[in-house]
Amino acid sequence: MTLFLQRVFDSIANGSAYAALALAISVVFASTGVLNLAQGQLAMLSAYIAVVFAAGADPGVAFSGWLTPFATPWPIWAAVAGAVVVSAAAGALAEYAVIRPMRGDPVPTVGATLGLYLLVGVFVVKHFGGRMRVLGSPFPQDRTDHFDIGGARLWFDTVGLTLTLLAAIGLLALVQRSTKIGVAFRAVTSQRDSAALVGIRVERVVMGGWAAAAALGGLAGGLIAGELHVRPDMMERLLVFGLAAATLGGLRSPALAVAGGYLFALSETMMAGYVGFIDYQVTLVWALGVLIAVLSVRPAGLVRRKAASAGLGP
């Protein structure tokens, strides 16, 4: 029982990151109909930006000279927060400069997100060095920083990461449900043409959706860096699981995307722990298999489109 409980605790941090990425993918797809293949890379870029903000004059951290003025010895939590702001701006810029000129044509738009994926990767290697960096966590990580529950250890870092990401998800849900911006976003995701006819500035709303998704993904990247360290491929695995989780709701149900993130993380941990022939790499193949199966059997996901468009709330 103790081992089972420990594996449940171990899955929580990854589940939070999967849920955040799944929600970011869902938000972008609901507002634009675009599958953003660059979502993970934008989150990885956010983690490298946080490294710069936290580096200060650390001689062990090398990056292009134009980044030097931004190298301030901020606390890790402030560095992550600053990176989230930059990520939101990068998401808005990507929508304006890369996605909007495609005029909603799905094939070239998905190709554009793939190009953005490659561009961000090259940018990181060229200007941030492309090497593994150690950012650390804004939450306590010493050996004694844990709760003992039923003989298992629940680390303070896991609790802090999970609560922070859930708070961000909850804030997004609150904005969507209780503000004019949220009403406009739901109108655009439900009936884009009708929303434009009643005076909603659709392009501005869509840009805001991209900014919110990039910020949420950037927060996940900055926080999970304390677990994975910062490297160019750090978000690739998380993106696959996030995409699989988002697909459960047909890429339109934020609530099911979040639930799917935790479900995939728990399944990944349990399969790797209890099934002898399944290891860390094989669980990634399993996630891809689920993704293909859902798209083959129910391309619209596990919920009706009307329900999926209703938002994060019940």
Rank of each mutant, 00 (worst) to 15 (best):
T68H: 09
A13T: 13
S26G: 10
S178L: 07
R231G: 04
V124Q: 05
G250Y: 09
Y117W: 15
V122C: 06
S46K: 04
V28F: 03
F128K: 03
V290T: 11
P140V: 05
G276I: 09
T162Y: 10
T109L: 10
Y18E: 00
V297G: 08
V8E: 01
P59K: 07
A24Q: 06
G311L: 11
G273L: 01
K180R: 12
V240E: 00
L228H: 01
G121K: 00
A246D: 02
R204Y: 00
Q6V: 13
G33D: 01
V285H: 02
L42D: 06
V275H: 08
L312N: 06
A55F: 02
F139P: 04
T247N: 05
V188R: 02
T2S: 12
G150H: 11
D142H: 12
F264M: 09
A71Q: 08
I25N: 01
M1A: 14
S46P: 04
G129L: 05
G208F: 00
A167D: 06
R237H: 02
G250W: 04
D233G: 05
G249M: 00
L248Y: 11
P69M: 12
F139D: 08
A90R: 06
G60P: 07
A220Q: 08
L248Q: 10
A213C: 02
Q6W: 00
A265E: 06
D233T: 13
V240M: 02
A287I: 01
G249S: 03
H146G: 01
V8T: 13
V297S: 05
P232V: 02
L5N: 00
Q39T: 11
E95P: 05
G209N: 02
V230W: 09
A167S: 09
L295T: 11
F156M: 13
L154E: 01
A97H: 06
H229F: 14
N14Y: 11
G242H: 08
A211P: 03
L93G: 04
A214R: 08
V61R: 09
L119H: 04
G301S: 05
P140H: 05
N36F: 12
L302F: 15
A225G: 10
L171G: 11
H229Q: 15
L67D: 07
S11F: 08
V202P: 03
Q6Y: 04
L135Y: 09
V80C: 06
F128Q: 06
A168V: 07
S46N: 01
V84L: 00
L219G: 10
L154Q: 10
W286F: 15
S137M: 10
L21V: 13
L174R: 00
F241W: 11
G33F: 08
L21T: 03
L228I: 08
